[in-house]
Design a protein around this nucleic acid. Structure first.
Lengths: 352, 352
DNA sequence: ACGGTCTGTTCAAGTAGTTTAGCAAGGCTG
DNA sequence: CAGCCTTGCTAAACTACTTGAACAGACCGT
């Protein structure tokens, strides 16, 4: 019925009474070769008609869409904040993230189980010619071979929270070493010498658990007269409380426990309660993650808070830098973002 | 250095030894004019080279990018789940949402304050030629005039959780009437006859508050011998506890309170505690929203849980339907999604 | 031998814009 | 007054792909 609703460049050119190519150049900012009056006329016509450059066209011409694919599920507030960081940083550069999600706040997706769906997701992004990709660890693992593909197609990929030795993508993770060192220092400063670390099952998608335990053990051993015992959750079943009870009931009961996650810390709380141990008088506990429930535990849990906004922002910066300039030819790397030890009421001086 | 990393259609055509236009037609599924063998050859070549149609090109040709702009901040778990619903529904139709965020889990953005930034956001989406738009209420309010623009450009817009009388967009909201009716029925069934409703300040960006209170009053008045008193928070300051204490200390103290939001319910809890009233023995309380803290209140709060996933999915369906088919010429509308009353321990039978 | 069908080709134009090369008019210099 | 440069602009080719028209060779039946 009506003529095209969205104004085209040629409409602007016609309105300003110049050729299309002149209008194109002027609107790109190449004013040098044109008269002042012409430039004004074109700019005004564009504004009056509400013309906007079609980025799809720029996309097919330059091969850049100013767009980054993001594959991160909104699993918990940590990841939501990572997304916020990504959005913020990309917006500054006038880029836009395109997110694919699966699952929701209650259900973590398992792409290992449904590889087809994951490939479909990646392709939805690639079909729109995203300039780069940011992924969460599970993807990074499940699609290692696809990553090689992307690398070859010159699409930079950044994986968050999973340092891999895979040579096809950059990574950004929490600085586990710095964070656990801070935990160890805090406990040692309080006088604790018999310290335990309770870890998860350390499956291969939880490289951070291993890393945390390792770094923590090392940090404790810096102190000559301190000892560190490590326990892991059962490989099958989730009976964290059982493991914690075993730990606390052992001959040489530790006076402090570092839990690799707040979840495990909660198990320690429960085990301590069932054994009549009071926190922090008999036992100091430190968690990791500062999950929602950490503040409202009794007593409030001292824990490590990561910096999801910063992590997201850094991941975004990495793909932008690979894309234009700074990191162009550089070897792939892994950025470590510091975390903060939040002291609450679950730690106290060691009894002597 | 090397030839283009991403395979072009002409590469596929060359590999299969056919013309570009033949390859194009065959890969679009127009097999009628071609031999079985040729079709197989082309399909195989495309697969081998990893060719994928460039959606940017389809976008400029058809005017459809299979993409929907979403302007919703990750303010709390409700909105995150709305986003999940949108993602899910769009993915089914092979569409992708492009989200613009501002603020994060802790900081709600105020676009009323910074209109420039909001316009920039909309333009970032429009420049990428999104087929439709889904917005949260604040946007809908702040940019009413821009909505007219979009309407004229034939870009369908759906606003969530804000029923407006503005004639340029569809809306989907929680069915406040059904939900509050359920609350009223529950309280009346328990024998309560003197019931209060405590609302927010009912600013103009909180149309839902007004709607809830209205619908609730109506529902209570269905019962001839029941009375309903309504209180609102102070227009300035946020002293909800004060208001609640006034309410509970009044001559004719209600035996049940419906709070328009869990936040107000929390105020009622605090006021009740300070007056020595026990819940639910002396006072029944029902909230609205089922915010994170509702379960862990003492006693656990009975509240209304909305269906964010369904709301998101429905919003997505609406833009898809406007785009292709079902809703094409239809008048704009407002879909109401039912909510569920979650009974916990904050309500009990009325004393007689 | 002739028309018809099947299978494929090439050509051209379209999408919305960018970019390179080049042309014409005018002023300035030698 | 020719030669040259600058200014101001345009034509045409390019991006990746779609679509329609026209056409050509092989094979079929009559």
């Amino acid at each position: 019925m009506e003529p095209p609703r969205v104004p085209r460049l040629k409409d602007v050119a016609a309105a300003a009474n110049v050729s299309v190519s002149a209008a194109s150049k002027i609107l790109r900012g190449d004013q040098s070769r044109f008269g002042e009056d012409t430039c004004r006329r074109v700019a005004e016509a564009a504004k009056r008609l509400g013309w906007r450059r079609n980025l799809l066209v720029s996309g097919i011409q330059t091969g850049r869409t100013q767009t980054v694919g993001v594959m991160i599920p909104p699993y918990d507030s940590f990841w939501v904040n990572v997304l916020s960081g990504i959005h913020r940083r990309l917006a500054e550069a006038d880029y836009l993230p395109i997110t694919v999600w699966q699952g929701d706040l209650d259900h973590m997706p398992h792409f290992e189980a449904d590889e087809q769906e994951g490939v479909r997701q990646i392709n939805r992004l690639l079909d729109r010619r995203v300039d780069g990709l940011i992924m969460w660890p599970s993807f990074g693992l499940a699609y290692e071979d696809h990553l090689a593909d992307l690398h070859e197609k010159n699409v930079p990929v950044v994986v968050i929270d999973h340092s891999s030795d895979n040579p096809f993508c950059d990574a950004v993770t929490t600085n586990e070493t710095q964070a656990t060192k801070a935990v160890a220092k805090h406990l040692l400063d309080l006088g604790h010498r018999r310290i335990a670390c309770i870890s998860t099952r350390e499956s291969k998608s939880q490289t951070w658990a291993l890393e945390r335990r390792d770094a923590f053990e090392n940090a404790v051993h810096q102190q000559p007269d301190a000892q560190c015992m490590s326990w892991r959750l059962n490989p099958i079943g989730s009976n964290g409380v059982e493991v914690a009870r075993e730990l606390l009931g052992s001959e040489l009961r530790p006076s402090a426990v570092f839990a690799v996650t707040d979840h495990e810390a909660a198990c320690v709380y429960e085990a301590a309660a069932s054994l009549g141990l009071s926190i922090p008088a008999d036992l100091s506990v430190v968690g990791f993650a500062d999950l929602d429930f950490a503040v409202s535990m009794a007593p409030p849990l001292s824990t490590v808070r990561q910096r999801p906004l910063e992590i997201g922002a850094h991941a975004a910066s990495m793909v932008l830098d690979r894309l234009n300039g700074p990191l162009a030819g550089e070897p792939l790397g892994c950025a470590k973002i510091d975390a903060d030890l939040i002291l609450r009421e679950s730690t106290g001086p060691a009894r002597r």
